[in-house]
Write a protein that binds this DNA or RNA. Structure first.
Lengths: 293, 293
DNA sequence: TCATACAATAGGTTTAGACTATCGTAGCCA
DNA sequence: TGGCTACGATAGTCTAAACCTATTGTATGA
């Protein structure tokens, strides 16, 4: 059976006349006769009762036409969906970002994306880096904002901005009065970090470990907010690395810039190379860069 | 687009693997690749995102698969309908009979048909002869019990039984005491008939008109029951022809048989020659004949 | 680095859908 | 009654599309 045949069936059922139905289908009358006959043979039931003078639906024909009509409608729906989504800037777009980034970049990026692609339904996903990469791989999200480098040949990666780190300490911390610090100055101080799995933890460790800063082992924060509260607690003696993007100033921490070569992380957009919407994502990257400008 | 292609689409969507999908569809992998690609070109949207290592649905693909699944289901429904109705003795069968016959033959015939064709859904239609013939022609009913002859080359006709007429009179009618009558005896008596359009009227007229029986002009009955009541009314002086099948005896009329050549009507079953269920209707005729004993 | 797994491509064969021309039948009108 | 028209069915041929096998290209993993 064939969708075309179903349309032939419907055409004959509508006009109850093979010649006119053939015209409506833009085929010859014998073609139509043949195909209907073939369909009847295939289904094993007569669909039309035909004489030289009249054509009418059989009981089976009537019922089958009913279903065929629904199929034809659904076929129309498929075309409608395809037409709508032919423009890549329509449909859904699922964008991920890891937790210590999401709340700071989404407020800037989302309006930019919505403005650039008003017909795109944007869905935001906040998860740890490795979960995002799995989801990206599995097609559960379409792109992710991640800290670079991302080593995966299946992904396309574009850097968006540098996010420098500040040293964050409480007001009574030994380093609190410094105008700037060098990474060497961290040696011997106690460092509080996020819990395992947060990429900010790894980034901070990469900066500090070589310098002999000693990680506070009794506690690891599970969110930036907790981290902030722990560090600013009186007599904590703790410090942490805080990304500039998260250093709002609306708290009681001291954020001290690094002198010399400022440690930083690079944030980029990552998506699947195989994604057919690659071109659109390229345009999206431009919109994002413009937004942070 | 093609139903086959939709099945290919579903197979790939289910397994997310072209090779296995091809096996499931009993075609080669290149065929599947080709057809999917062709479909994507036709619709103008990418349905799958493919790499060497993985296949996943695009947003468009996901939505279209949803509709395709419904279409596949409906295709199944068409097969189910065809399988069910492949046996002619299933589905609906609409049987008509004219009013002065219906109430007397249906109680006998319907159980016989139901017994012979238990899967047939029998629908009964009661209407005047010419309406039944129109409906039969238009395919609105499948067969009709009519008084013969039926002159229409499009119809198949089989006589079922002879229905002799009685002369029906009230107890005080001049002919009430007769053991039998001849058609000549009707001359000069007042005849009450059914309204225009009832075939019993025409049949009775055919019997009586030649004999000079005088039709009561002031009133025509619209049902056999009314006719009965009018004739049996004291001092009515009316008579009518009553088919044997309707002469129940459970009323106050005298039913007098005709001597010599008894006038009668022939009742037969009529259906369209072109009806594919002709064979089944032939079997039905046998069942009807058996039922009337 | 070789073997494996996967989808895409190339080239040739078969099938099915399409065409034109014609038939067969019934209804209509002169 | 004979010829005209309208209708669907049939016959024979052509072509496009669906299919096959064989091969390519590219990752992954031992």
């Amino acid at each position: 059976m064939n969708l075309r045949d179903l349309h032939y069936l419907l055409a004959v059922a509508d006009g109850l006349n093979f010649k006119r139905a053939a015209e409506a289908c833009h085929v010859s009358q014998p073609t139509l006769s043949m195909q209907i006959k073939k369909m009847e043979d295939y289904l094993g039931v007569r669909l039309f009762e035909r004489t030289n003078k009249s054509v009418m639906l059989t009981d089976a024909g009537r019922r089958i036409v009913e279903v065929a009509r629904r199929i034809a409608q659904d076929e129309g729906h498929i075309h409608a969906i395809a037409t709508m989504l032919r423009d890549p800037a329509t449909g859904e777009f699922r964008l991920g970002a890891f937790p210590t980034l999401a709340s700071y970049v989404f407020p800037v990026y989302v309006p930019a994306i919505v403005k650039a692609f008003p017909k795109l339904r944007l869905l935001l996903i906040e998860d740890k880096t490795h979960v995002l990469m799995e989801k990206l791989n599995a097609g559960k999200i379409d792109a992710a904002l991640l800290a670079l480098p991302v080593e995966d040949s299946a992904f396309e990666v574009v850097p968006l901005f540098e996010d420098p780190f500040f040293l964050a300490v409480g007001h009574d911390h030994p380093l609190a009065k410094r105008k700037s610090v060098r990474t060497d100055d961290l040696t011997g101080h106690k460092l509080l970090l996020l819990d395992e799995g947060h990429c900010l933890r790894d980034q901070a460790l990469a900066v500090c470990r070589a310098r002999g800063a000693e990680e506070e082992q009794s506690f690891r924060a599970t969110s930036l907010e907790t981290l902030r509260l722990m560090v600013q607690a009186p007599q904590s003696g703790l410090m942490t690395l805080m990304p500039a993007i998260a250093a709002s100033g609306a708290d009681w921490l001291r954020y001290i810039p690094f002198a010399g070569k400022t440690p930083s992380r690079t944030i980029g957009l990552v998506w699947r190379k195989a994604d057919a919407r690659g071109d659109m994502i390229g345009v999206m990257v431009k919109a994002l860069k413009a937004a942070q400008g």
